[in-house]
Computed example of a mutant assay.
Amino acid sequence: MKISHLTSAEENLMKLFWTLQSFYLKDVMEKHTEPKPHQNTVSTYLKILVEKGYLSTIREGRIFKYTVLVPIDEYKKFLLNELCEQFFNQSGRELAAFLLKESLISQDDIKTYFDVPINTKPKKVKKPKLEYAEEILNPKKGKGRKKKKKKE
């Protein structure tokens, strides 16, 4: 099964459909949050999602019953693969590093999920050189101003 991209509106409706799994148009209209879209708008999106292969239909008399064909986990996997391909050079390692750097996940999250000890090296911070402060705080003998001898 080939998964294609969804528009933002299609994705928002699919989130509701994933919770329902199997439904009629009237179910969508009842469960949709306010502001509710017009019934014709929802009907159009249902038709598009059937054409894209996300939903299937069964005719029951004069109405259609819709069933989700693409599970949410498959769609998540599709989106994550696209993200890795487009922005992280197809590298899960780069993606994980980015998530850690942006604090979207923590090392504890990773340890808990994978049950694997993870040792990360803390960033090395160079100590600032305090040359002038050292001279002021710890003056060395013999150093200081030397008087110039005049040649006569």
Rank of each mutant, 00 (worst) to 15 (best):
K77E: 14
K2C: 07
K123Q: 13
I136Y: 06
Q39E: 14
V116H: 09
C84V: 14
K121T: 09
H38R: 14
N81F: 09
Q90G: 08
I48N: 12
E85C: 06
Q39W: 06
Y113P: 00
S91N: 12
H38L: 15
F87V: 06
L79I: 06
N81W: 14
K126Y: 07
T67G: 07
E11P: 02
V28N: 01
S56P: 00
K140T: 09
L25V: 00
K141C: 08
K150I: 13
P71S: 05
L6Q: 01
K146R: 11
L13H: 06
C84K: 15
V28F: 02
G61F: 04
K121L: 09
Q86E: 14
A9T: 13
R59L: 09
T19K: 15
V50D: 03
L80D: 11
K126W: 04
E10A: 01
K101Y: 05
V68E: 00
K143Q: 08
M14C: 04
E10R: 01
L79Q: 10
V125I: 13
Y45R: 10
K47Y: 08
K151H: 13
F87Q: 15
L130P: 06
T41M: 08
Q107M: 10
I72R: 15
H5E: 15
I58P: 03
L49W: 00
K52Q: 04
I58S: 15
L20E: 05
L100T: 06
I118S: 02
L137E: 02
Y132H: 11
K26M: 06
I118N: 02
V70K: 01
S22C: 03
K36A: 04
D108F: 04
K77W: 08
E85K: 15
M14N: 01
F78I: 07
H38W: 07
I110T: 02
E102N: 10
E152A: 12
T33Q: 15
P117T: 01
L100D: 02
L130E: 10
G142H: 02
Q86D: 12
E60S: 12
S56F: 03
P71D: 04
Q90I: 12
E131Q: 06
E74K: 14
K121E: 07
T112G: 13
R59F: 03
D108K: 13
I105V: 10
L80V: 14
E82F: 11
V70Y: 00
D27H: 05
M1D: 14
K111W: 01
F23A: 01
K76D: 11
L13F: 09
K36L: 06
D115M: 13
S91T: 06
E51M: 07
N89D: 14
K129F: 04
E74I: 07
N81A: 13
T19Q: 15
Y75Q: 02
I63F: 11
D27G: 00
F78C: 02
K126G: 03
S43G: 03
E34I: 10
Q21T: 10
K15S: 09
E30V: 04
I63C: 15
L13M: 07
V116Q: 15
T7R: 01
T19L: 14
L99G: 11
K47I: 01
S4F: 10
K15Y: 07
K126F: 06
P35G: 03
E82N: 14
E102L: 09
K52A: 03
E11V: 03
K127Q: 07
K101A: 08
N40A: 14
K148Y: 07
I136T: 03
L137Q: 05
N89G: 08
E60F: 12
